[in-house]
Amino acid sequence: MKKVDWKRFFGILGLVVYGIFVLFPIYWTINTSFKEVGDVYKVPPSFIPTKFTLEAYKFILQGTGRLALSNSLVVAIGATLIAVFLGTMASYAYSRYPFTGLTNEGAQFNLLTVRMFPPIAFLLPIFWLWKTLGLLDTHFALIVTYSAFNLPLAVWLLKGFMDSLPRSIEEASYVDGYSFWQTARRVVLPLIGSGLAATVALCWIFIWNEFIIAYLLGGTDVILYTAYLPALRRGMRIMWNQIAALSVLAIIPSVIILVLFRKYLIKIYLR
């Protein structure tokens, strides 16, 4: 008789339990999003919709929900691109040039402290800043604020990748006859490609899921989906099916990015 590999058996069992633990809320969200609102409140709850309906999706995609999602897309894409673009340049400088006055680590740590405070500590002054400038509740204000909050993360992640790129490779490129910008395009960017992908993914997740900034700096003219979700409460009744439908739609872009970039994200943890 073949001996049972108990270690492996329990390992797989553990992973299955963990998988259910992680995936169940997602399953339940999807399940809820296809139900009628009355069906949601039924006791005991049903594991598949008793009446399959796209009502909730229709509601979200016709009304403010669609606007909120597209606002979120604009803001998250804009802020991610700016944070990663500036982060790439800043991390190159941190990695390659000495800073006078501060050590490189000191200068970088200063930048990183921005991420250590809870954002709420900064938000009141930032709120007043935008209000004074008359830019409150605009895409611009949201994009700039999100980029500012995520730039330190981008710099910190990318600097690690820049540091691991030997200087001599860039110098070989200069000697071969390429300029600084040609070298950046030919050598530096391809070699930190996985770092860029991972940074894009992480910045995206932080910006896309963010609530407090979205709630305080937007909310009327420019409403992001995270700020719109709580609005789906009608009086005493919570429209769980609509909330679920919006959540399902909101998961999609993040899933796409994570699937595309997952092998690069793993690299960050393996480094």
């Binding site: 001599s168 490779i169 070989a172 000697v175 390429y178 050598v187 391809p190 070699l191």
Partner: peptide, 29 residues
């Protein structure tokens, strides 16, 4: 600048471009 001097240099760590083939490395200049 090094770019404009037309010199060649073999670095101690060889400094090959890891993302290019050997052919592309040699063809680079």
């Amino acid at each position: 600048s090094a770019q404009k001097r037309n010199v060649a240099m073999v670095f101690q760590d060889f400094a090959l471009y890891p993302h290019m083939t050997v052919f592309e490395n040699i063809a680079s200049p």
